[in-house]
């Protein structure tokens, strides 16, 4: 290309370079902020399904990366708890079994906790359970290092 034509081309391109770069930065920062928003929301309150109550983390010892005290989960028809990542509530500690327990709701709307033959057991209000037990508002469930508290509102929404 002729020298003076190249000069003009290069001079004009300057602005395009800056524009592109800042667009790239803008999109990247936006992407970061969106992820940040999700991380903050965490699994705190997600009510996409009808919920029968709330199970919250009352106490959580060191060594668990996936839960922390104060987190709340909606109790669904079938809420699995365990170490493996396909559980609804994941506790990544060696002393928690891969499929440890499940909280489920039966046809009458009652909420039960069932131990899935776990190694170290599931504890309800301090007592180890052997068969499915009904849970009431205020009950404490302990699995491994985590203690959950159950809250059932007086008028639970029962959807279809």
């Amino acid at each position: 290309m002729r020298a003076d034509l190249y000069e003009i081309t290069s001079l004009s391109s300057r602005y395009i370079f800056i524009l592109l770069i800042y667009l790239i930065l803008y999109r990247t920062i936006k992407s970061i902020r969106m992820e940040y928003a999700w991380a903050e929301a965490g699994a705190a309150k997600i009510s996409v399904e009808p919920s029968y109550g709330i199970i919250s983390v009352a106490e959580c010892l060191d060594g668990v990366s996936t839960l922390w005290a104060g987190m709340e989960f909606p109790i669904r028809k079938w809420t699995t708890i365990g170490r493996s990542s396909d559980n609804y509530i994941i506790i990544d500690r060696e002393d928690v079994s891969k499929q440890h327990a499940v909280i489920y709701v039966d046809e009458t709307g009652d909420i039960y906790i069932k131990d899935l033959k776990s190694k170290n057991g599931t504890w309800l209000n301090g007592k180890r359970i052997k068969r499915p037990k009904k849970v009431r508002s205020g009950d404490c469930i302990s699995i491994g290092p985590v203690t959950f508290m159950v809250k059932i509102p007086s008028n639970p929404k029962i959807g279809r």
């Binding site: 992820e35 999700w38 991380a39 929301a41 965490g42 699994a43 997600i46 990366s65 996936t66 989960f73 990542s85 396909d86 559980n87 609804y88 509530i89 994941i90 990544d92």
Partner: peptide, 11 residues
């Protein structure tokens, strides 16, 4: 990194 299933599903 292991995410809570719910968060993971959203993401």
């Amino acid at each position: 990194i292991v995410y809570q299933e719910s968060v993971a599903k959203e993401r």
